[in-house]
Design a protein around this nucleic acid. Structure first.
Length: 419
RNA sequence: GUGGGUGUAGUUCAGUGGUAGAGCGCUAGUUUGUGGUACUAGUUGUCGUGGGUUCGAGUCCCAUCAUCCACCCCA
């Protein structure tokens, strides 16, 4: 039995890789425009980083981490998300002594041990952005606007941005008490999961799908009603920026995100997929994280986009159909084996001019070579035979129009767009 | 972690307990130096794996593994 890839992993192979390249190049282009720098951190870290950074009441840490002991008996974890690593690297390299804010983006694999299903893998890929060092609410707005621009520039439709404010260490504890006082009255009616959440993280009850729990929580106090002045003003400014930038959003007072480090602005974005795994990105502000991880008290904000879900959404919306290949492909065919060396030489010359060129390495007959050229979507086929070699001319066929001309080397290069 | 579906060719899938199949793809051919269409031929199978029932199992039963879908959670 042949060995298969581990559960929850997938290969990006054959034509699929073009989809990823398309997305990645769009992303890196945009990041340049916004003047963000790429950061590459290791894909494994000390387990402790995630325990402290992501939070040990989260499901991610609780049950989804790939953790193991290495040969030096260190506890290692494959990163389940990117923010903690970026924060760690920022602190470790004293980013706070450099010009602020630090603006990073990253792209790479993440690992979570969960049951795979549509749009969910154990090794999956995220693109993410982190900005450290500014508390300005306009930054929240800019980051949101940028995230939306990523999706719209890829052509993705039916986007739905939801935002909320989850408060800060000043107002959230107070709100939690108010919420708990309210929930106490209905405690016995909550589902078992939510009864457990009551002590550990009552805000998460908002996420419950149970209709009874929803009924109870819908009539309860919302965090946005109990924000401190600072958080409230901040949130108002964020919304002002979004209105100014014509970024459409829905205020979702019930949204509470699954990671402990979020403060103030939190957001999530979906793209019209029905039900399961419709979320293609999310993020928020994390003003306490840098300090929590041993750095100075600096605010931060970021988001992550699930690339598998972007690919899935783009496939569903048929957005890969009209990908335009900018570089033309030239196939150099030989009439017989005697002409192969001439074909090779031509291919080498074309390549030196930056023209994409290939020739037959399967010793196919001429007809077979044309079939092959057609299959690989060659734009041109140049045929080399004894006549052409003798007369120093080239048969150039445009595979899209079917037109074929005889030309000199200079004309050939000119036709192929070379210098 | 919970629940459901499916495992047969590269792929998508037929296959009533009795000789292993089709479409697509791929490879080659259809006499002369030219693709897409058409036609012809070929295409590698421990029918996921291990047990059981049976004269006989791709088919029925059990187990196991894999995979897909949904829940949970998230991207």
């Amino acid at each position: 039995m042949a060995i298969k890839g581990p559960k929850g992993t997938h290969d990006i192979i054959f034509n699929d890789i073009n989809k990823w390249h398309t997305i990645e190049s769009k992303l890196t282009d945009l990041m340049e425009v916004y003047d963000y720098q790429e950061i590459r951190t290791p894909i494994f870290e000390s387990t402790e980083l995630f325990l402290r950074g992501v939070g040990d009441t989260t499901d991610i840490v609780d049950k989804e981490m790939y953790t193991f002991q290495d040969k030096g008996d260190r506890s290692i974890t494959l990163r389940p998300e990117g923010t903690a690593s970026v924060a760690r690297a920022f602190i470790e390299h004293s980013g706070f002594n450099e010009v602020l804010p630090s603006k990073f983006y990253y792209i790479g694999p993440m690992f979570r041990y969960s049951r795979p299903q549509t749009g969910r893998f154990r090794q999956f890929h995220q693109f993410g952005v982190e900005v450290i060092g500014s508390i300005n609410p306009y930054l929240d707005g800019e980051v949101l606007e940028m995230m939306m621009k990523i999706f719209t520039s890829l052509g993705i439709k039916n986007l739905n941005l939801e935002i909320n404010s989850v408060g800060c260490p000043k107002c959230r504890p107070l709100h939690k008490e108010i919420l708990k006082d309210y929930l106490k009255l209905y405690f016995n009616e909550l589902c078992p999961t939510c009864q457990g959440r009551y002590e550990k993280n009552p805000l998460r009850i908002f996420d419950c799908k149970n209709t009874k729990c929803q009924e109870i929580i819908n009539n309860g106090p919302y965090i946005t009603d109990n924000l401190c002045n600072e958080c409230n003003e901040h949130f108002e400014e964020v919304k002002k920026y979004l209105a100014m930038s014509k970024v459409e959003y829905v205020l979702n007072k019930k949204m509470v995100r699954g990671l402990d480090y979020y403060t103030k602005t939190a957001f999530e974005i979906t793209a019209g997929r029905e039900g399961a795994q419709s979320s293609i990105g999310g993020g928020g502000r994390y003003d306490g994280l840098i300090e929590e991880l041993g750095g100075p008290s600096l605010p931060g904000i970021g988001f992550a986009i699930g690339l598998e879900r972007v690919v899935l959404t783009m496939e569903e919306q048929s957005l890969f159909d009209n990908l335009i290949r900018i570089r033309k492909k030239v196939y150099v065919a030989n009439v017989s084996e005697d002409n192969i060396d001439a074909a090779v030489k031509l291919v080498q010359n074309l390549r030196n001019l930056g023209i994409v060129a290939i020739y037959d390495i399967m010793t196919r007959k001429l007809k077979g070579q044309f079939k092959y050229a057609n299959k690989i979507n060659a734009d041109y086929v140049i045929t080399i035979g004894d006549d052409e070699v003798k007369n120093n001319v080239y048969q150039l066929k445009n595979m899209n129009t079917g037109e074929q001309i005889v030309c000199s080397y200079d004309e050939l290069i000119k036709n192929l767009g070379g210098e």
